[in-house]
Design a protein around this nucleic acid. Structure first.
Lengths: 141, 141
DNA sequence: ATTTGTGCAAATCGTTTGCATCTGA
DNA sequence: TCAGATGCAAACGATTTGCACAAAT
């Protein structure tokens, strides 16, 4: 394991990668570092790729897409579906919601304790509730 | 105006098309008929195109995409963003929410009076709330 | 040594667009 | 008449995939 991962307190990320059967390779470790070293973030594959290049690291866009998918499957990331033309990934995987401004394609967190959804009807027969996503669409004025 | 549109009680659709500066052409009228003649529906461009073909009507897929976009801009349809790979359109434009089952790509309405969202924080500065979308993700069991 | 990941380029898929032709007002 | 709509095929942009090579266990 790389030293910076240990320092960054990402044992849990590494552990979850292993647990999900994902080998900690150089590219995946570097992506995990970029994603999780600071506070929580919302980003697209392209944004992450740009960041990788800016750091002088070499990782292909294809590998970034693959890694984002694997991390999402492993529960390390959450995919946010607000824009039909591109997928956002959220490094914060605990229950919370979002403001979304289409005008500037901006996502802002709403803490899970700051919003309440109640009284939804019983789900269609044969199904059970997995997750409740709320998007508060806003516009600039 | 075509007789079936009058019969179907779609004066309001025609009126809103005109008001939005959308000419009621043959293709747009036939699409409006398919969309609004019966109860409310959730459909993709491809689904609507298949239905058009099944009715023996000839409308190109490109025109269907354009028309869905125009109808959405005119407020006749609502675009539902639940699946990053394809856009759904809802003929029900009054405030309501959805169950979504990823397993079979199925959307089910939740009446606007059957679900409550409260207590969201003040929106980011410079913005105002436009709409609140709730998706209750369910899984088959 | 064997399995799994990576890079690259090509393929895919939903959607949009350019342009010549047609149509509705 | 003539602005605006349609059809078709080509263009597009995000994402996935096939395959030869490289790295991890």
């Amino acid at each position: 394991m790389h030293e910076w991962l240990r320092k960054a307190g990402n044992e849990t990320v590494i552990a979850r990668m292993r647990q999900a059967g994902i080998r900690p390779t150089r590219q995946r470790n570097e992506l995990a570092n970029l994603l999780f070293r600071n506070g929580h973030r919302h980003l697209t594959a392209e944004m992450l790729h740009a960041e990788v290049l800016a750091e002088g690291i070499q990782i292909s866009l294809g590998t970034i897409y693959n890694t984002l998918r694997q991390f999402t499957q492993a529960g390390l990331l959450l995919e946010i579906v607000v824009n039909p033309t591109r997928s956002y990934f959220d490094t914060n995987t605990v229950q919370h919601q979002h403001f979304y401004c289409e005008d500037d394609d901006m996502l802002v967190d709403i803490s899970g304790t700051k919003i309440t959804v109640t009284d939804w009807p019983t789900p269609p027969s044969g199904t059970q509730v997995k997750r409740v996503d709320v998007v508060v669409h806003v516009r600039r004025h």
